[in-house]
Simulated assay, not measured.
Amino acid sequence: MSEDSGLDGLLEWLDSSPDLESLLDREKALVFRGFGATEERLAPVMDRLLPNRLAYVHGNSPRTKVGDNVYTSTEYPAEFTISMHNELSYAHQWPARLLFCCVTAAATGGATPVVDAALWLELLDDEVRERFADGVRYTQNLHGGLGLGKSWQETFETGDRDEVDAFLAASHAVSQWRRDGSLRIVQNRPATVHHPRTGAEVWFNQSDQWHPAALGDETAAALAKVMPQEDLPQSVAFADGSPIPAEHVLQVRDRALAAAVDVDWRQGDVLLIDNLLVAHGRRPFTGARRVLVAMSD
Rank of each mutant, 00 (worst) to 15 (best):
M1R: 06
M1F: 08
L7A: 11
L10F: 13
L20P: 00
D25H: 12
K28M: 14
L30E: 01
V31P: 03
G34E: 02
D47H: 11
R48F: 02
R48D: 04
R48M: 06
L50P: 02
R53T: 06
S61E: 07
S61P: 00
R63T: 04
K65V: 09
N69A: 09
V70Y: 04
Y71M: 00
T72Q: 08
E75I: 00
E79R: 10
F80Q: 04
S83G: 11
M84K: 09
V103T: 13
A105H: 07
A105Q: 11
T112D: 04
T112F: 04
V115G: 00
E130N: 12
E130S: 13
R137K: 13
L146R: 11
L148E: 11
R161Q: 14
A170S: 09
S171G: 15
R178M: 11
R179V: 13
R179W: 07
D180H: 05
P190E: 04
H194E: 13
H195N: 02
T198C: 12
V202K: 00
W203Y: 09
N205L: 03
D208M: 10
W210P: 03
W210S: 14
G216V: 03
A220D: 13
A222S: 10
A222E: 10
A224N: 04
V226R: 07
P233A: 02
F238S: 01
S242C: 07
Q251M: 14
A260I: 02
A260M: 07
V263L: 09
A279H: 01
A288E: 14
R289N: 03
M295K: 05
S296F: 15
D297Q: 14
